[in-house]
Amino acid sequence: MEVAVLSGKGGTGKTTVATNLARMLGWNYADCDVEEPNGFLFLKPEITLSETVTVKSPQIDGSLCVSCQRCVQSCQFNALAYAGQRIMLFSKLCHGCGACMYSCQTGAIKEVPRPVGHVDIGSSAGLRLVQGVLDIGEPMAGPVISKVKQMLNEGDWLVDCSPGSSCNVVKAIDGADFALLVTEPTPFGLHDLDIAARLAEQMGIPHAVIINRSDSMDGIIHRYCQDNDISVVGSIPFSRKAALLYSQGNMLLDDSEYAAVFERLGSALKEAIKCS
């Protein structure tokens, strides 16, 4: 079972929901928000293994190259150029797709690994934990996310995604059995919940909503969910206490009042998955 936790908007509490639910349900946790992975700050695992993530990067053998420039023309990302009688590679633009190598008629291009980030594997309180970390200045998160997803072999997983609805979120939720959409009762939260819900819908992933920082304004989210036939698993009330616990990197579960909230959310989530 793989449950993706996402939200159109950043900062709605994806990581709070994913980490606390993981611990409450005894599920494993994977952080696919590789640009800003934060789940490990809360779950504080002992990291037992760290693996470099690489992409394939072309290497050109000048002695075999006949300067036909087929590789330059084949590259859709402008990562190759031909000037001064040689092929130049701009590796940060390379997607590692292999088109240049396939296009080469003389076998002058081979591929070598180029590091773009790493994946950490650890454990905490019996849970398996994985996070992906993108190197600073690397524009493409996709390969790091894919590597994290490869690690999710057996068992139940909560997958923490990046905000938005871009290609990175698509990669992270691809193959998920269920999506949990975290929102907050503000006009921004509503606007971006709609984006997340449409993405889940388009990818054919059954989904439900959790309202974080719940207050007297929850009505705007409930109305949306009713109109769109999406179930609301529950809500997490706002309090300064919760904000403080979060700010210190502590789990909301450490507080008995919030532990009860997550217990209810956990069983409601299981129920929602069963019904989907």
């Binding site: 950043g10 900062g11 998160a141 990197g249």
Partner: peptide
């Protein structure tokens, strides 16, 4: 945009000044 990826780089290049909005949380 949030993050440190390609959209952020595209919004940062060539500007005169960037204001980072931080918050007092470990994340």
């Amino acid at each position: 945009s949030p993050g440190v990826g390609c959209t952020v780089m595209a919004s940062l290049t060539g500007v005169d000044v960037a204001l980072i909005v931080g918050e007092p949380t470990v994340s």
